[in-house]
Amino acid sequence: MPKQEGQKSKLLTLLRILEQKTDEEHLLNVPQLVELLEQQDILAERKSIYSDIDTLRSLGYDIQLRRGRGGGYWLASRTFELSELKLLVDAVQASKVVSARTSSKLIHKLEALCSDYEGTQLQRQVYVDGRPKSDSHTLLYSIDALHSAINAGRMVRFRYKDGGTRTVSPWQLAWENGCYYLIAYQDEKEPAGIRNYRVDRMSSVTVLGDARRGKAEFRQFDLPAYLRKHFNMFGGPEYRVTLRCTADLESAMRDRFGKTPLFVPEEDGAYFHFDVPVCVSPQFYGWVCGFGGKVEVTAPAEVRQGLREIAKKLAEMHQ
């Protein structure tokens, strides 16, 4: 009988072989498993492989056997299905705020969750509108620090894109238009209130010992409503805006504003109108113009005037 070397690690090594070298299309029989173990300086008898596989099964691992010619064992169930890993890889690749280097590291780690053969299918390339990915290498550390501060109820200090330093009370993190945003209460300067900051434009995020503030402001805070009325997360004076749209834009308006607004169809059926709260900014005006005349701001007068002024300026620039 050969000396049973490395028996303490044999079970774990066998599991790793099954994880990395097998899937439904790639099976390993007992002699092949013995050979792969020997390549890692672990001697095993064929009979012991059956016992080891039974032990792994008893621990909850779904190891299946296909009998007959070309048959063998494979790990049938994993934490993530291949389709789920592809979806995660696409999300990482598509995110413009995750740097190329960080994307590569994350995808490499995701590859370890499937077989080597399936891992080659995770080398996918997904681009968003041709925009370059961020070169921020500290994003993951910033997000981790902000989560820690939110969970502990502490304030944070960070340097922002303009070179200035901010000290704020973090309450929530949001994902909007491909970017991470911190939703926080700030009272460093007037007016105090709820603000948002792009996380990929932060650096040197530090969790402070001071208890965060803004509890009263966030007691009734509705994040989905906040995101709907801030276009591209830009702020501005809030108005109750009435929008008149052509009938074919109903699904587009639902995608933007959700189920809450009451869409009122007009008599001819060609238009509908509704009221929504909007933080009016140049980004909101740009959104309205982007529909090429299919969306009209009918109220209030101040917002209509602002749209006229922007349209006049654009017309003068393009004469």
Results as ranks from 00 to 15, higher is better:
I150R: 14
Q20N: 10
P237G: 14
K294I: 10
P132K: 11
D54V: 13
Q121H: 10
E111H: 12
E250H: 14
P191D: 00
G293S: 03
V97A: 05
S104I: 05
D54M: 07
Y239Q: 04
Q64N: 10
K96E: 03
S103W: 08
P170R: 09
L33N: 04
D62V: 05
L314V: 09
P265H: 13
K189S: 03
G209C: 06
G306K: 15
Q125G: 05
L249I: 10
E309V: 08
N29M: 10
K133A: 11
K215W: 03
R154V: 01
L262W: 02
G119Q: 04
G178F: 04
R244Y: 05
H147M: 04
S281F: 10
D135F: 06
R159I: 12
E238W: 11
E217F: 06
G269L: 07
M155G: 00
S95T: 03
Y61A: 03
V89L: 08
R57M: 07
V30T: 09
Q319G: 07
K105F: 11
D200G: 01
F263G: 15
M1Y: 14
P282G: 04
S95A: 06
A225L: 14
Y239H: 15
T55G: 04
R213M: 02
S48T: 08
L59R: 13
I49C: 06
P277S: 02
P2E: 00
R57K: 05
A315C: 07
